[in-house]
Design a binder for these strands. Structure first.
Length: 479
RNA sequence: CGGGGUGUAGCGCAGAUGGAAGCGCGCCGCGUUUGGGACGCGGAGGUCGGCGGUUCAAGUCCGCCCACCCCGACCA
């Protein structure tokens, strides 16, 4: 790790982000343009995200499976909107085994088509439904402009694909998975979200309706961190996914798909990080507590290592690590673990051992403010409480930040003014058309992130058209 | 694909006017250190992004190409 400070988060957000990802050893650039290597520390974080989501998927009746990486190109041509949306970013294999292929193979950008093809084979009767499959894999989209975690050529994610007998059941599934993303984001990642529906312009290529969770990043831009799509019968019709209903009538299924990717890591970084580095929510942190032993000579060394060992044993409920490196000073280690965002640090040295105590430092409150001395016999309870407390206060801080930077406007002039002067989210009544939305994006760079589902605002006047409406739109500049 | 920038040691950079490839950090060894990014001494490490041209001589001048980063358009 470099010994320099990070660029200032408030002044150079983009540089700050890039360097943080590299220096916290979350990821590194790979030799192929736009793709990245996720390093062990970043992958450990992703594994915790996987665990949290996978548990929730299983609890709602989903099972995991695997589908192939390569998909016949013709599959993409079966759903008109889907191919239109994806064709610019497909990577296509045309040569294999030293020969030009009869039919080009697409490296999956998402699996709706191949899964649709298989579902058509597997589903015959209403008794086969619903089918609730989730897949953990990676996909490739040839993006023009990339950024570590947020948009890379290849990224890891989960994609859920379900098929149902009725329209309402599919809609229910779509919203259930959106709720799961929300609950996960809030409770595990301490990242507040706005749940909502995508507009026609912004929805998934091939979907009937798309929903998303949207979060505010530290630079006031919006990040879509999870999506859930009601695909209607679009893919069922394109792939002949049909079943016989109770009355012996052939019906098309109703399908859904939903996904959350390694982009979510980028969200965690940009919501919680500070000038010292990453700040990880305790529930997802690969290491929750790091113990830094402090010593001068061999005698002190064995005493503090012994004390550290005992602390670790007592903290068996937490993911605890002892920093045994002997060639580095404590000060270096403090900065190192702060860069990596470990929520809680325990310093133990000769003075502490003599006093029967240890020093606790919480990552979310940097410097002296977050330090306290604690008697060793109170350590377990204190650590447990602190981890919960850190998780909560990280969430509260993020909510406060988002709310302070969310504005309501009544006119388009005001909209432009607020966006230029303050930025952030604009949440206002909206009755405009797709063309109006396009015009606003063209003129201000801000787009409708979603039409929020929860609307405490009630009825009001659209800032753009002046029409009375109960629909609200969330506008922001987005990643 | 448009605009901008950068390619010299693992990283960050310096190498006016062409004339023996350097500095800082990191890395390796030994010793002293260790409560907020330690220090000394000794080392290892380079087809100067690539190809071509000008020249007695190119990191440096010229041409072409490539890669990456930033800002736009497109996107989870």
């Amino acid at each position: 790790m470099s010994s320099e400070r990070l660029p200032s988060r408030s002044e150079h957000f983009s540089d700050w982000y890039n360097q943080l990802v590299l220096r916290a050893e979350l990821a590194d650039y790979s030799p192929v343009r736009g793709s990245m290597v996720i390093r062990p520390y970043g992958w450990a974080l992703w594994e915790n995200i996987q665990d949290g989501l996978d548990k929730r998927f299983k609890a709602t009746g989903h099972v995991n499976a695997a589908f192939p990486l390569l998909i016949p190109l013709s599959f993409f041509e079966k759903e008109k909107d889907h191919i239109e949306g994806f064709s610019p970013e497909l990577a296509i294999v045309t040569i294999a085994g030293g020969q030009e292929l009869e039919e080009p193979l697409v490296v999956r950008p998402t699996s709706e088509t191949i899964i649709g093809h298989m579902y058509a084979k597997w589903i015959k009767s209403y008794r086969d439904l619903p089918i609730l499959i989730n897949v953990w894999n990676s996909v490739v989209r040839w993006e023009l402009r990339t950024k570590l975690f947020l948009r890379t050529t290849e990224f890891y994610w989960q994609e859920g694909h379900t098929a149902h007998a009725t329209e309402s059941e599919a809609e229910e599934e779509t919203l259930q998975m959106l709720d799961i993303y929300e609950e996960f984001s809030v409770n595990e990642a301490a990242v507040p979200v706005i749940k909502g529906k995508k507009t026609e312009r912004e929805k998934f290529a091939g979907a009937k309706d798309s929903y998303s969770i949207e979060s505010m990043m530290g630079d006031l831009r919006a990040l879509q961190s999870g999506t859930s799509h009601n695909l209607g019968q679009n893919f069922a019709k394109a792939f002949d996914i049909q079943y016989l209903d109770v009355g012996n009538t052939l019906q098309h299924c109703w399908t859904t798909s939903w996904g959350l990717s390694t982009r979510f890591l980028g969200g965690i970084i940009m919501v919680h990080g500070d000038d010292h580095g990453l700040i990880l929510p305790p529930r997802l942190a690969p290491t929750q507590v790091v113990i830094v032993p402090i010593f001068r000579d061999a005698e002190q060394k064995s005493a503090t290592f012994e004390a550290a060992e005992q602390i670790k044993l007592r903290l068996s409920n937490s993911r605890t690590l002892i920093d045994r490196r002997e060639d580095l000073t404590p000060g270096y280690k403090f900065n190192d673990w702060e860069m990596r965002g470990v929520p809680l640090r325990i310093e133990i040295g000769p003075k502490d051992i003599a006093a029967g105590q240890a020093v606790l430092a919480r990552r979310d409150l940097p410097g002296r403010e977050g330090k306290q001395e604690i008697a060793l016999d109170k350590l377990e309870d204190t650590v447990e409480d602190l981890l919960i407390n850190i998780q909560e206060s990280m969430y509260e801080k993020a909510v406060r930040f988002r709310d302070e930077n969310t504005h309501y406007v009544e006119t388009y002039d005001e909209f432009k003014e607020v966006l230029a002067d303050q930025g952030g989210f604009i949440r206002s009544h909206w009755a405009g058309t797709s063309e109006d939305e396009a015009q606003i994006k063209e003129e201000t760079k801000a787009s409708i992130r979603c039409l929020p589902i929860d609307r405490p605002e009630g009825k009001g006047r659209c800032f753009f058209t002046g029409k009375e409406t109960d629909q609200v739109a969330l506008f922001a500049k987005a990643y």
